[in-house]
Simulated scan of single mutants.
Amino acid sequence: MPKQNIHPKWYPESKVYCDGKHIMTIGSTKPELHVDIWSGNHPFFTGSQRIIDTEGRVERFMRKYNLKNTTNTK
Rank of each mutant, 00 (worst) to 15 (best):
K30H: 11
T71V: 06
H7W: 10
V35M: 09
T46G: 03
I26G: 01
K68P: 00
T54P: 08
F45T: 14
R60W: 06
V35A: 10
N69M: 01
E32H: 14
T54D: 15
E32S: 08
G47D: 05
T70A: 04
D19T: 02
C18P: 00
K21W: 02
I52Q: 06
N69T: 00
G56H: 05
T73E: 10
K3E: 02
P8C: 03
L67P: 00
C18H: 04
K3Q: 10
K15L: 04
T71K: 07
H42N: 13
T54H: 11
R60Q: 15
H7L: 08
P43R: 01
F44E: 09
E55L: 06
N5G: 07
I51K: 12
R63I: 05
G20S: 07
H42P: 05
H22T: 07
I26L: 11
K9F: 02
Y17E: 00
Y65F: 15
E55H: 04
N5A: 11
N72L: 06
Y11M: 07
N66I: 01
T25L: 05
K9C: 03
Y17F: 12
K15D: 06
M62W: 00
I51Y: 14
Y65M: 05
D53S: 02
G56T: 08
N5T: 07
K68F: 00
C18S: 05
M24T: 15
N69Q: 04
L33C: 03
H22F: 13
I26K: 02
M1R: 13
F61Y: 13
E13Y: 10
P12W: 09
V58N: 04
M24F: 09
I37C: 08
K30A: 14
M62L: 15
N41F: 10
K74D: 02
G20K: 05
F45I: 01
K64P: 00
T46H: 03
D36W: 08
P12H: 12
K9G: 07
G27F: 09
K74N: 03
G40D: 13
Y17D: 00
T54Y: 12
S28Q: 03
K21V: 07
V58F: 14
N72T: 08
S39P: 12
G47K: 11
Q4S: 11
P12D: 13
R60S: 13
I6H: 10
H22E: 15
T73K: 06
V16C: 07
V16K: 03
M1C: 11
D36S: 14
K64T: 08
K64F: 04
G56N: 11
G40I: 10
D19F: 09
Y65K: 07
V35E: 07
E13D: 15
S48L: 04
W10V: 15
D19M: 08
G27R: 02
H42Q: 06
K68M: 01
T29M: 10
K21E: 11
Y17V: 00
V16W: 04
F61D: 02
R50P: 01
M1E: 10
K68C: 00
N66L: 02
P12S: 13
N66F: 01
K15N: 04
E55W: 02
D19W: 02
C18Y: 01
Q49L: 13
I51S: 12
F61M: 09
R60A: 15
N41L: 09
